[in-house]
Write a protein that binds this DNA or RNA. Structure first.
Length: 391
DNA sequence: GATCCACAGGAAATAGTGGCTT
DNA sequence: AAGCCACTATTTCCTGTGGATC
């Protein structure tokens, strides 16, 4: 009797969800200071007062969201009356304006659709105030990736003052803003800064040692047995992640991919080579995730840089990039945009880490300009773009 | 230390989306 | 069906910038 393909595979990971991005650990490691500060800011809720507004900032994967979820769990445990607080968490990436965020918050609070876009702003705000009032509790709004609101801070101005302005009476409002952009606070108007930033908590990147502690705990929970792990795998994952972003997510992603790689090759243990292989895979995954989010012209711009790279014509300045871009567009039967727009798309690509941008200045004999070059493996670009074609 | 290159990037205008109200 | 409303992507126009050169 023939064996099925499934029987051929060995399994190293027992609890896969422990290594997933949305996994919520039941204890938070290496963030004691932050938790203490956080608890201080939220303490008033337990005593029946309105909470401080909290603003968290730090790069991705340093525990901002995990700590926030943990704090809210703890808050519910601490409070006798479960109805005394209402927590609404949203991600501002999906609602990048005050207007849309207000709609989303109102609907989440009501747990049904009470408003939708198309109404004047004042109606939307009224609806939100009504919903807050209806809870008769302390409402905590968790606004993740708050920097996506940009300088549109009307909502952030309104909410902390809703009570003082008489829009609500029986309820309290607390804001928790989460941002991975340090510069975000500078864009805010001073009036908003004062109220939103009552308590600022900074999350610094994890160092290699801290990452090791975290990864150890996770690995123990996830794997069938630690015996399947070569010495140094956890150290290597931690070191690589610490060197790069200091992000726990990155360390865990690396680790998971390394385990998968070992499994696929029928190995009984995970080795450092698996980690090296995982490195390129994680990178490619990041690219494949981001490319579909680009606009058509963003992809064309990326294609243009890749084409130049292939012809060893990099680094190249914006003007030359525009020529490549125009040709790519025409080859795809798309009307090219103006060079000013290409600037913006190239800017995006640089921000996403797809291209590198160097500022040059040749003074009176050349002026100031940028030079671009590809910052990711050229193969990944073509593969990801091909992948898109097929869909 | 003034000049000046060649561009970056801000601001306003414009076109076009989807959704609502009357 | 016509008219708002909020919002996005783009174009057009223009001011600002940093350092090599004078």
């Amino acid at each position: 009797m023939a064996t099925t393909p499934f029987e051929e595979t060995t399994s190293l990971i027992e609890q896969r969800d422990v290594l997933r991005e949305d996994y919520q650990p039941n204890e938070i490691l290496e963030r004691d200071d932050e938790i203490t500060q956080y608890a201080h800011a939220l303490k008033p809720i337990i005593d029946g007062f309105s909470p401080n507004n909290v603003f968290l900032y730090g790069k991705t994967g340093v525990g901002k969201t995990a700590v926030t979820r943990y704090m809210i769990d703890m808050l519910y445990e601490e409070i006798d009356d479960g109805d005394a607080i209402t927590v609404v968490s949203i991600n501002c990436k999906l609602t990048p304006t005050s207007y849309q965020t207000a709609i989303k918050l109102a609907n989440e609070l009501a747990e049904e659709e009470v408003v939708c876009s198309g109404h004047p702003t004042s109606d939307v705000m009224d609806a939100l105030h009504t919903q807050i009032e209806a809870t008769e509790s302390t409402v905590l709004f968790v606004l993740d990736e708050i920097d996506h609101l940009g300088d549109d801070d009307d909502l952030l101005y309104d909410l902390p003052r809703a009570k003082a302005n008489g829009y609500i009476e029986d309820a309290d409002v607390g804001l928790i803003g989460i941002s991975n952009d340090y510069t975000y606070r500078q864009n805010l108007s001073p009036k908003v800064k004062d109220t939103l930033m009552e308590k600022e908590i900074k999350f610094s990147p994890y160092d290699a040692g801290e990452l090791q502690t975290i990864l150890h705990t996770r690995a123990e929970k996830a794997l069938i047995s630690k015996d399947y792990l070569d010495n140094g795998v956890i150290q290597l994952c931690s070191a690589l992640a610490a060197q790069d972003k200091g992000s726990a997510r990155q360390a865990i992603d690396l680790f998971r991919e390394a385990c998968d790689h070992a499994e696929e090759n029928g190995q009984t243990t995970v080795s450092e080579e698996n980690v090296r292989a995982a490195e390129t895979r994680v990178e490619r995954g990041r690219i494949e995730e981001a490319i579909p989010d680009l606009t058509n012209h963003g992809r064309l711009a990326l294609m243009a840089v890749a084409t130049a790279e292939r012809r060893e014509d990099t680094p190249l300045r914006t003007k030359e990039l525009y020529d490549y871009y125009t040709r790519c567009a025409k080859a795809n039967a798309i009307d090219p945009l103006t060079d000013r727009s290409l600037h913006d798309h190239a800017d995006d690509l640089a921000m996403l880490g797809f291209v590198k941008r160097h500022e040059k200045n040749k003074g009176r004999k050349g002026g100031k300009f940028f030079e671009y070059e590809l910052d990711i493996p050229i193969q990944s670009v073509y593969e990801a773009l091909d992948e898109m074609e097929r869909l």
